[in-house]
Amino acid sequence: MALIEVDKISKTYTLGDVEVNALRGVSLTIGKGEFVSIMGASGSGKSTFMNILGCLDKPTGGRYLLDGVDISGLDRDELAEIRNGKIGFVFQGFNLLPRTQAIENVELPMFYKGVPAAKRTERARAALSMVGLEDRAKHYPNQLSGGQQQRVAIARALVNEAPIILADEPTGNLDTKTSVEIMDLFRHLNAENGITIILVTHEPDIAEWSRRTIRFMDGQLMSDEERTERHG
């Protein structure tokens, strides 16, 4: 069974009197363990699609099944629970909480899940060591480099053992060398831990790290290509 099953979803915003069709009938499936990149110009609907995939927003039409659950019927708190347990977010701007230690940032999703204290610390340490930052646990975000902050964000996305990581331009604020490190980490997590990774980017060389690229244009799917050879 597909992990993500999107069936003719559409999203219409009303801005004053004007109706904007951000998505017009998009259908696709993403299986467990895939590494997908989503590309498209701004205004193509890729961000809207990403928000819906991430359960931050609900489609106005069509059906979205995540792990067999129909998202459109859920309320605010049920969506929050899905985000908490099934989806790990990685953002362009890292979005760590300021004045909060790296390990506390990583622990945050577990608080909202209600994980007991002892287990929290243990799992947060494990997640930090997966991204190679076990020695930076007590550092504050402003004491960490951009690449390190993004690693903390990835550790936070991993910590509730979410099957999906949604990364929105994760390398947008990083230099090339650090970008490569972060992409390498994603590929590792995908290959070794079987985590499904969905990556929004507008940089073709970042998209090349994935094995499947979906392109959006004017709120519709333009192309959906599998890549056979792996990026070296």
Binding site: D77, A80, R83, N95, L96, L97, P98, Y112, N160
Partner: peptide
């Protein structure tokens, strides 16, 4: 606001 957004994205519910 941004902090609230982050918390919501990673699973904070209304009452949290």
């Amino acid at each position: 606001t941004r902090e609230i957004g982050i918390r919501m994205a990673i699973g904070a519910k209304t009452w949290d």
